[in-house]
Design a protein around this nucleic acid. Structure first.
Lengths: 214, 214
DNA sequence: CAGATAACCGCACGACCGTACGCTTACCGT
DNA sequence: ACGGTAAGCGTACGGTCGTGCGGTTATCTG
């Protein structure tokens, strides 16, 4: 019965796991979670296949850990920076801008990680589907809550249909990602930004709270 | 040097190819074009793996044929019925309604075939990517042309930004598909229809051309 | 110090993958 | 009627997959 101290062994394991997951999220954003393979990961990182396997216990656990790792990256790039703003339309808009930048800058080489793996697992069953669907739902909920806080701050009309607005915003965000990755065409990001700004101005109590151009 | 007549052998081959592709598009809409395998297809249809292979020549050719088969289905369900209407906002709206129905009725069990395989191949290179991207581009172009014809018919404002409008419509369509498949929740179809109708009313010279409710 | 524990490796397994080749069978054009 | 051709099967190949097991090494616990 002792405090779990910094363990050289365990810590080394965690570091290797991080190294593997760093590569795994990049692979999965391009080739999907099914495109991951223990052998490939081991080869590319100079490890043994059995070593990689042992660190995660099974292929499914590796996939789940990969999704969790991607959530952390997503949170750090998109969600966290927006927390530093007070509730309001500015916060909503920053969330959207962060998302577009996160996609456009290819934080993951295949564009948004969750766009890729959601489409891959949407019609399947099992823990991977559930985890991916949960992450997607959490993002949606966060956006709705942020809009609702802007409403309570008086910057969004009281009669606004928030689920509808969130639906349309996410649609534009994901469409920009999809188009840009599929056709290597980055003009869609300003299309999405234009569309979102237009929608936000439509519900703003004071449209001057929003920038004139994306 | 003769007219290619109805050939019993060739015709039998075509029929088997159709049988295989019918199954292939269903599998691919759920598990992706990489989820297709010659052995699985052969097993499920009571054929031999080498027979299936011979009918297509290679895995990639099977995948390309699968995409072409899906295009035919898509055209028959979404595009063709709208051709029977004259150019105008009604035609644009019917195209959208057909798309939503095609997704909602699960013409393909995994929802829209092209949503699945576009996300799967968007960040890859090769003939499959090019074919998928081409199909997606054709759909986009068709929608833009249909809107432009409505504009020339005087039903859409002259100053309408058609690429922007098409972008937003497709975003809403695909978002409805994505949400409904991922979360088994069909309320998103009316969200998409609402959003599209709202956009169309915004550009219509005579909003009464459009229905009040989806 | 002794013993447990975890990282990591090498090796082997059964299954499935795409592809190749040769075979039989049935239909085709001439 | 005959030679060519395509459908479709059986078998085999080399490769990769996820997983299991035993062993070595380094670290932590008591």
């Amino acid at each position: 019965m002792s405090v779990t101290r910094a363990d050289g062994r365990v810590e080394r394991g965690n570091q290797t796991r991080r190294l593997i997951l760093q590569r795994a999220v990049r692979i999965a954003s391009v080739e999907g979670l099914e495109g991951l393979s223990l052998g490939r990961l081991a080869n590319e990182l100079g490890l043994s296949k059995s070593g990689v396997f042992a660190l995660f216990g099974s292929k499914v656990e590796l996939q789940l850990a990969t999704v969790r790792a991607a959530i952390k990256v997503y949170t750090a790039y998109v969600v966290q920076p927006a927390r530093e703003l007070p509730p309001g339309l500015g916060q909503v808009w920053l969330l959207c801008r962060n998302w577009l930048t996160y996609s456009e800058q290819r934080v993951f080489p295949g564009g948004c990680f969750f766009y890729s793996v959601s489409a891959e697992y949407d019609a399947r069953e099992g823990k991977v589907h559930d985890t991916v669907a949960g992450a997607h739902g959490n993002w949606f909920t966060l956006l709705e809550r942020t809009i609702d806080e802007a409403r309570r701050a008086g910057e969004v009309g009281e009669d606004t249909d928030i689920p509808q607005l969130a639906f349309e915003i996410v649609a534009l965000l994901e469409m920009a990602n999809a188009e840009s990755v599929l056709h290597d065409n980055f003009t869609c990001y300003s299309k999405a930004a234009d569309g979102i700004l237009h929608r936000l101005r439509g519900v703003a109590t004071d449209p001057s709270l929003l920038p004139l151009t994306p």
